[in-house]
Every structure is written in C-alpha cells, then in structure tokens.
C-alpha cells in the first residue's frame, strides 16, 4: 500500500462523507460547512493528479468566495433548522423525481464508460470532447491556453451570462426596496442613486 493510495483513500472517503452529510443535514449552516469539507477533499484529489492550479482555484472560488456568500446569506436569513418538513410531495412528482434520478445514474454510467474507451482519446481534434493530457495536465499555462485561445468565445459568453444574472439580482433587490419604503441609511441610498445615473 503506497502513500499515494492512502492519501487517495482518505480524501475520497472524506469527499463522499462530506457530500452525503451535506444533503442529509437539516441545519443549512452544517450543510454549507460539510460542502466546504467535501470541496477541500476534492482539491486534494486534484493535487494528487498533478493539477495543482485546478485544486487551488477550486478552493479559492468555491470555498473562499461562493460558499462564504452562501454562509452569509443563510446566517442573515437566520434559518436554524426550525422550519417544518412541509407537505409530503404528491405521488406524480415523486415518480418524476425517481425517474429523473434513474436517468441521471444511467447517464453517469454511460459518461464514465465512454471516457474510458479509446475512441474518445483518439478524437482529439473534436472540440466537444475533453482531451486528457498526461504530462502537463491542469497547469496554469495549459488552462490559460484553453480558456483564452481555444475556447475564448464560449468563455466570454459565460461571463456575459453571469453579468446578466448580476444585473437581474440588482434590479430585483431594488424593486423590493421600493415596496417596503425607505429602509437603509442615507449613504447607501445616495450611492445607489449615483449608480443609477
């Protein structure tokens, strides 16, 4: 049993444990913290593959930025696991759920199986297929070439999509503020007025 295998086993068990605990916890704070744990273990797996950059980016973007905002919002909403389970789902939606779950598992099996067949690796010229590079996989330079040269157009489109989401969120927040009347201090109102101009 090599050291690599020991580290791989520990981190993969922690990753699966964190993901399972995340969906089974009633307390939303605990869910977010378990998700951070799972992401950390996944970052270790990336680093073991030699993709140091991917591991670091996973930690910075998810654990550092997105999940901190999640925690922030959940704490502000003050959900303390007190809310009831709600009405049981009607049987039709339950069947739809199970059908979708089975479909998803089948899809997962097919993707995993196809990624191990040699045909995919042979078709390196096809832009729709993920190409596995063994020697420099996940290095900063490689990721940059893929993002800013080969897939520049879809990458920029994604950023515009995110911008649309941000603008939408700002508009939604502003409308709800008008309904409630003036809420905040003068300073924030003034700054928003400037931004609107």
């Amino acid at each position: 049993m090599t050291l690599d295998l020991v580290i791989f086993l520990i981190s993969s068990v922690v990753a699966v444990f964190g993901a399972t605990m995340m969906i089974t916890q009633r307390n939303p704070i605990a869910s977010v913290l378990f998700m951070i744990l799972s992401l950390l273990a996944q970052a270790v797996l990336y680093i073991q593959l030699g993709a140091l950059f991917m591991g670091a980016v996973l930690v910075i973007v998810y654990a550092g930025a997105i999940l901190v905002l999640f925690l922030f919002v959940i704490m502000l909403l003050n959900l303390r696991g007190r809310e009831s389970l709600g009405q049981p789902s009607p049987p039709i939606s339950l069947t739809v759920k199970y059908a979708l779950a089975v479909l998803f598992v089948l899809e997962l099996i097919m993707v995993v199986k196809s990624s191990f067949s040699s045909d995919v690796f042979a078709d390196a010229g096809n832009p729709g297929v993920m190409v596995m590079q063994t020697d420099n996989f996940g290095a900063v330079n490689d990721v940059a070439v893929l993002l800013f040269q080969r897939y520049l157009y879809p990458f920029e489109l994604t950023s515009i999509l995110l911008l649309v989401a941000i603008v939408g969120a700002v508009i939604l927040a502003q409308r709800s503020r008008d309904d409630d009347g003036p809420v905040d201090a003068a300073s924030s109102g003034e700054s928003e007025g400037k931004a609107a101009e």
């Binding site: 140091l52 950059f53 670091a56 980016v57 930690v59 910075i60 654990a63 550092g64 930025a65 901190v68």
Partner: peptide, 13 residues
C-alpha cells in the same frame, strides 16, 4: 502565491 491565497480564505470561514 495562489496556494497562499487559497489557504488564507479559511480564516474567514
């Protein structure tokens, strides 16, 4: 330097 940026984010958590 990116690694340091990544691990220091745990302070805020």
């Amino acid at each position: 330097i990116l690694y340091i940026m990544a691990v220091t984010t745990f302070t805020v958590i």
